[in-house]
Amino acid sequence: MSGVPTLLVEHSTLFREGLCKLLARTGFIVTAMVSHSDEVETDSSPDPELIIVGVSENDTGFEKNIRALKTRFPQARVVVLADQYIPDQVHTAFRLSARGYLMKTINCSTLIKSLELVMLGESIFPSAILTRMVDEQGVDIEIDDEIVTEVPTISHSSRSLSAREMQILQCLVRGQSNKMIARSLDIVEATVKVHIKAILRKIHVQNRTQAAIWAVNRLDPPPAVLDGHGALDTHGAAYKSNRVHMAP
């Protein structure tokens, strides 16, 4: 993954500048910072590939802001950073095809990994809020089997994992294929498959994507791998793109 042009839209100057400094250490290149979508310059270049939108509890212009950004930059992936989970905001984010809804209280490493997954085609939304929306509001939501959630519902410890399984989990976080894992650890691909099946069973998840999210939330991340230009290197790996559908 090369450097990702990123637009920050956030009312708080302090939060905006802090996030900019955090992203400067990664493969995300902040090309503009504004407090509202109206402030984005018409001749800004390059167009952002990622737009991070900060929202507060009483942000009445949330939907208008997202619509304006999606209209202006239709190819960009939008991620919402919220003060707290607001069901109406989550519903709106889904409806407007945002790719993620995260809390501003998220830790730095999990935020960066979440943004990386978004750029690799994943959608990241809190599973707890989706369930509550269905139960309380009767919202019709259809989610693919491999949908990524910010906080997986399982809470099992990593103590039962072997040292080799921990290594393979970190490879999954980096998006490596079985063949790439086998090459980097100097083992055969069939052995990798056996280890991954054991990992899924031990941490009680269904697939490698959920295992990667589990690891992001519970294990210390390895140092970021950067290329010579300061861009994040994921070794050419790509995650399966998932879809999230919500009836308006």
Rank of each mutant, 00 (worst) to 15 (best):
T92S: 12
F94H: 03
L96D: 15
S97I: 14
S97K: 14
A98V: 02
A98S: 04
R99A: 10
R99N: 09
G100R: 00
G100T: 01
L102S: 03
M103Q: 09
M103H: 04
K104H: 08
T105F: 03
T105P: 02
C108K: 15
S109V: 05
T110H: 12
S114L: 07
S114I: 09
L115N: 01
L115D: 01
L117A: 12
L117W: 06
V118E: 00
G121R: 02
G121N: 00
E122F: 08
I124L: 06
I124Y: 01
I124K: 00
F125R: 06
P126G: 01
L130H: 08
R132W: 10
M133W: 04
V134L: 05
V134D: 04
E136N: 14
E136D: 13
Q137H: 12
G138K: 07
G138E: 07
G138S: 12
V139E: 14
D140M: 07
D140C: 11
I141H: 10
I141S: 08
E142I: 10
E142W: 10
E142C: 10
I143K: 02
E146P: 06
E146V: 10
I147S: 12
V148M: 08
T149M: 14
T149Y: 11
V151S: 13
P152Q: 02
P152A: 10
P152V: 07
T153L: 04
S155D: 15
S157I: 10
S158C: 15
R159N: 08
R164L: 15
R164G: 04
E165Y: 08
E165K: 05
Q167E: 15
Q167S: 13
L169N: 03
Q170L: 06
R174L: 11
G175L: 03
Q176V: 10
N178A: 09
K179L: 11
M180W: 10
I181W: 08
S184M: 03
L185I: 02
I187A: 04
A190W: 09
T191R: 10
V192T: 08
H195Y: 03
H195T: 08
H195G: 01
K197R: 11
A198I: 11
I199K: 01
K202Q: 07
I203R: 03
I203E: 12
H204C: 09
Q206T: 14
R208L: 09
T209I: 05
T209Q: 00
A211I: 15
A212F: 00
I213T: 05
I213N: 02
W214E: 02
W214T: 03
W214M: 06
